[in-house]
Design a protein around this nucleic acid. Structure first.
Lengths: 213, 213
DNA sequence: GCCATTACGCTACGACCCGTAGCGAAAGGC
DNA sequence: GCCTTTCGCTACGGGTCGTAGCGTAATGGC
């Protein structure tokens, strides 16, 4: 409930014994291990504390509940996502989609992501935490991809910046949503063939969309 | 764990007192009410039983756990989805997407859908239950939509049936995934403007996709 | 009409997890 | 050296889970 520490490492440690950063990392690592082994619903705070070699009270000083802990434990995995310039919009899309799919295949993320999103529908602070820790890191890739495609001339330069933002939002929801839905709801593989069809659909549709305004 | 009853109403009641169908409906209704009021994580089996005016043991005779109960309670809501012929592919898409979005706006479904999908990553029977109770009901709309578009001449007639199935799967994941991601992850409204952009993207991309094979 | 069968409501129970409080000890700032 | 904060530990009340056991109610077979 209270403020705890917005992020595990407080920035203004006034006085007294500082928090152990080793404990921080041990807890996050133990959380990921527990997610792999037990999944979301059977993961308990006490178990994570034991795995991390830490007292349960130490855990509660940093994270108020399971949701916040798991978001932070999984968020760092999204740092792996990057967007190397592969020379064409379609190649860039396919590369990042396959990266994202590989991330969703990992049992930690597979079991945790949907769970915390579900919880966030009734927890605005958690929703904000997810947005800043996870969603924004993905969205950045969309912006970079569009910018490069424009520099290559694959997409026309923007006219109305508001419309451009709207299209960026759309692309982000379509790509991320489609991959998640394919992997978790349809429970079928996000392989090269499927990704090829998705990127072809997007590239084809984007051309027509740009002419709208 | 055991078989319980795959669906709440067993079809071969050999002898003895039959199960109360009134209790079935009371429990499902109470579950939806509890989802609205409490959300997924705070919903308890005991509370649902009390709301339904039913003993907790009666509840466990029908559903083995919270997941199965909630899937059945929410599944019937998806019967509302239908696909009237509005004369064009884009109009059909926009109509069904807005219907789906309205369904996702309801607090029962908003809090429950992602949660059961998250659980299903570690529970194959639950995944199958979700597929037959919810996913197939949505997917049928995609098949109908494509068939009508072909009859209108908006899309070319199929050649390779395997490729057609693949495109149907793709469209389904893209549409459902995008709407869910927009509504629950981005937490922004699925309004007419957004739906218009999505359907324009799809219609434009589908033309190019069909020419692939 | 009687009986076997099954569902029902109720109570009680052990097991587990939650989140917190209280303690003495440790580790830093000043 | 003193103050502050964190640490590990133990213990606790409160809540939920899922099941067992009981007597009772409702139905089909004979």
């Amino acid at each position: 409930m209270s403020c705890k520490s917005g992020h595990p490492t407080p920035r203004a440690p006034r006085a007294g014994r500082p928090r152990s950063t080793e404990a921080d990392e041990a807890i996050l690592e133990a959380t990921r291990a527990a997610l792999v082994e037990l999944g979301w619903s059977k993961l308990t705070m006490g178990d994570v504390a034991t795995r991390a070699g830490v007292a349960k009270t130490t855990l509660y000083r940093r994270w108020g509940n399971k949701n916040e802990l798991v978001v932070d434990a999984v968020a760092v995995l999204f740092d792996e996502l990057e967007l190397p310039d592969l020379g064409s919009l379609q190649a860039d899309i396919e590369h990042v989609v396959l990266q994202f799919a590989a991330l969703l295949e990992r049992p930690e993320t597979k079991t945790a992501l949907m769970a915390v999103v579900a919880e966030s529908t009734r927890d605005a602070p958690l929703r904000e935490r997810i947005r800043t820790s996870i969603v924004e890191r993905q969205k950045r890739l969309v912006l970079d991809g569009r910018r490069r495609a424009q520099e290559r001339g694959e997409l026309p330069a923007e006219r109305d910046p508001v419309a451009v933002d709207a299209v960026d939002d759309l692309i982000f929801d379509v790509v991320a949503g489609a991959v998640v839905h394919r992997a978790l709801v349809s429970a079928e593989p996000v392989d090269a063939a499927w990704v090829g069809r998705l990127s072809a659909l997007l590239v084809g549709g984007l051309g027509g969309l740009a002419s709208l305004g």
